[in-house]
Design a protein around this nucleic acid. Structure first.
Lengths: 130, 130
DNA sequence: TCTTGACATGGAGTTGACTCCAAGTTATAC
DNA sequence: GTATAACTTGGAGTCAACTCCATGTCAAGA
C-alpha cells in the first residue's frame, strides 16, 4: 500500500531549503550527500528524505559544525538502531554536550541583548554581567 | 578610590581566551578590536574589558555571526545607553530573533540525538519527526 | 528545425578567517 | 656583550566552503 512519493528538481529543493543549486551539487561532489538518482535525461531527482538531509546539514552548520565533522552524522541510516554504531553514539553524545554549552552561551547573549534593549538605566559594565 | 587594574600580555589573554596571538593581532588589524595600548617597548597590553570583548567575539562566532556582522555589536560602548543607538537596537533585535530560532533548531537536533541515543526501538523515519 | 531554458559536468576563481613567516626590536640571563 | 625569549610589523600562504563559468545535453514550444 505504498503511495507514489513525489519528487523534486534540484531547483525546487534549492528554493525549498534556501541552499543554492551550486551548493547542493557541491555537497554531492564531496560526497556529503549521496549521489542523487537521475531521470532518463540525467537530471537529478530528489525526494523528501533528501530535503530532510539538506535541512539537517544547514542545521548542523548553524551549530558551528564543519562539513567534514558532520559526515558521520549524515551517514546514519535514518531507520537504524543507534546501538549498532557505538562510535557514532559517542560522537553524538559529545556534540550534544557542545550544543548544550552553546545554548548557554546563546542564552547569555540574549540576556545581554535584552538588558541592552530594555534597560537604558544600566549604564555601567554591562559586559561584566555576562 | 580606583584600584590599579591588572594588565595582561597578548600571550596571557590568548591562553585565557583560547584565541591565538596571531588571531588577536588579526582582529586588531581588521579593526574588530580597538588598537591595544602599548607599553614603552611597544608590546600590547590588555585589560579585563579586552578579554570580555574577545569572549564576546568567540561567543557571537559560535552563533554563526561573521566578523563583519558583529562589528556594530562590538562598537557599543559597554557603559552606554542603547536608546542612543536606534539602528543598533534594531540590529540587536534582529539578531536576537535569529538566535532564538537557532535555539529552536538546536533543541530539535538535541531531541533527535536523544531519540537516537535513548530509544533503539524507534527504527523508522526518525528524521520525519524533526 | 530552431530557439529557449533547465539541467549536466569539470574546473577555475573568490571569500572569510585565519596561520605562518621573515626580519626587526627590546629586556633579561649568562 | 652576546644569546635567548617574547614581542613587533607587513605580507604571503592556506583552507573550507562555496560561487562562477564554459561547454554540452536534452525536451518542449513556436
Amino acid at each position: 500500500m505504498k503511495t507514489t512519493e513525489s519528487t523534486f528538481t534540484i531547483k525546487q529543493i534549492a528554493d525549498q531549503t534556501g541552499v543554492s543549486t551550486d551548493t547542493i551539487r557541491y555537497y554531492e561532489k564531496i560526497s556529503l550527500l549521496p549521489r542523487a538518482d537521475r531521470k532518463d535525461n540525467r537530471h537529478r531527482i530528489y525526494r523528501q528524505k533528501d530535503i530532510d538531509m539538506i535541512w539537517l546539514i544547514t542545521c548542523l552548520k548553524k551549530t558551528g559544525m564543519s562539513l567534514e565533522e558532520m559526515r558521520p552524522f549524515l551517514a546514519v541510516p535514518t531507520d537504524s538502531d543507534p546501538a549498532q554504531y557505538p562510535e557514532l553514539v559517542a560522537k553524538l553524545k559529545n556534540h550534544r554536550e557542545n550544543i548544550v554549552s552553546q545554548l548557554a552561551s546563546l542564552q547569555q547573549i540574549i540576556d545581554f541583548i535584552d538588558m541592552k534593549l530594555e534597560e537604558g538605566r544600566y549604564r555601567r559594565n554591562d559586559l561584566d554581567n555576562l
